[in-house]
Simulated scan of single mutants.
Amino acid sequence: MTKQHLPVALCVLNTLISGASEPWDRGLISDHATKLGYKVPRVIDLARVALESLIAECAEHGAVAVVLPSLDHLSISALKTLQAAELDVATVYPEIARHDTVKPGAH
C-alpha cells in the first residue's frame, strides 16, 4: 500500500499528562501509528484543543483512528465519544488497539 493510500490516524496527547515527557510521547505515538500502518498528518494536544475540535479534525483529514500514549490521556467520556464517532483507538502503553481498518500483519 502506498503512503497516499494508507488509512489516516491523528496522534493525540494531553501535555498536562505528558509534562516533561511531551517530546518523547510525540515520537512514541507517531512511531506507533506508523507501525500500525497509518499515515499521520498531525499530532493534537488535548490540553489545547477541545474534544469536539479533535473529532472535527478527524473528519477533515479522513482519519479512521486516534493513537495515544496511554488511556491516561483521555477521560472515559472522551473515549466513549471517540468510539461513538466510529474512530478506532490505539495506545502505546499498554499496547492495545481497536481497529478494523489496518491491514493484517502491519504490526
Rank of each mutant, 00 (worst) to 15 (best):
Leu16Thr: 11
Val89Asp: 07
Asp25Gln: 14
Pro69His: 05
Leu6Gln: 03
Lys103Gln: 15
Pro104Phe: 11
Glu57Phe: 05
Lys39Pro: 01
Ala85Asn: 01
Ser75Ile: 11
Leu71Cys: 10
Ala78Pro: 11
Val64Asn: 04
Val64Glu: 06
Ala63Asn: 05
Pro104Lys: 15
Gly27Phe: 10
Val49Lys: 02
Gly37Ser: 13
Tyr93Gly: 04
Pro41Met: 00
Leu16Ile: 00
Lys35Glu: 04
Tyr93Phe: 14
Ser77Met: 07
Ala97Phe: 03
Val67Asp: 01
Cys58Pro: 04
His107Ala: 13
Ala106His: 06
Glu57Tyr: 11
Leu13Val: 08
Trp24Met: 15
His73Ile: 14
Ser77Gln: 10
Val89Tyr: 02
Val49Arg: 00
Lys80Phe: 09
Asp72Pro: 04
Glu22Lys: 12
Leu79Met: 10
Pro94Gln: 05
Ser21Pro: 03
Thr15Pro: 01
Pro7Ile: 02
Ile76Lys: 11
Thr101Ser: 15
Lys3Gln: 15
Cys58His: 10
Ala50Met: 06
Val8His: 01
Ala78Lys: 04
Ala78Val: 04
Ala90Trp: 03
Ser75Gly: 09
Ala84Gln: 11
Ile29Lys: 00
Asp45Ala: 09
Met1Val: 09
Arg26Ala: 04
Gln4Lys: 11
His32Thr: 06
His61Lys: 14
Leu28Ile: 07
Thr2Lys: 12
Ser18Lys: 01
Glu95Ala: 14
Tyr38Ala: 05
Ile96Asp: 06
Pro41Ser: 04
Val64Gly: 03
Thr81Gln: 10
Ser53Thr: 15
Ala63Lys: 01
Ala65Tyr: 05
Asp88Glu: 07
His99Tyr: 09
Asp88Gly: 13
Gly105Leu: 06
Tyr93Ser: 14
Thr15Val: 04
Pro7Val: 00
Pro104Gly: 09
Thr101Gly: 11
Pro94Tyr: 12
Leu13Phe: 08
Asp100Asn: 12
Ala50Lys: 00
Gln4Gly: 13
Val66Trp: 00
Glu86Gln: 10
Ser18Ala: 01
Ala85Glu: 01
Ala50Cys: 07
Ala65Gln: 02
Pro94Thr: 00
Lys39Ala: 09
Pro23Gly: 12
Ala56Asp: 12
Lys39Glu: 04
Glu52Ala: 13
Val67Ile: 09
Ala20Met: 11
Leu54Cys: 03
Glu95Val: 15
Leu82Thr: 11
Thr81Ala: 08
Ile76Phe: 14
Val92Trp: 01
Met1His: 06
Ala78Tyr: 02
Leu51Trp: 15
Val12Asn: 05
Leu68Val: 10
Ser75Glu: 09
Val49Ile: 06
Gly105Trp: 14
Val102Gln: 09
Ile96Glu: 15
Ala106Val: 06
Ala90Ile: 05
Asp25Ser: 07
Arg26Leu: 04
Asp72Trp: 08
Ala20Trp: 07
Ala84Trp: 12
Pro41Tyr: 00
Lys35Gly: 00
His5Gln: 02
Lys35Tyr: 07
His5Ala: 05
Ala47Asn: 07
Thr2Trp: 13
Pro104Asn: 10
Thr101Lys: 12
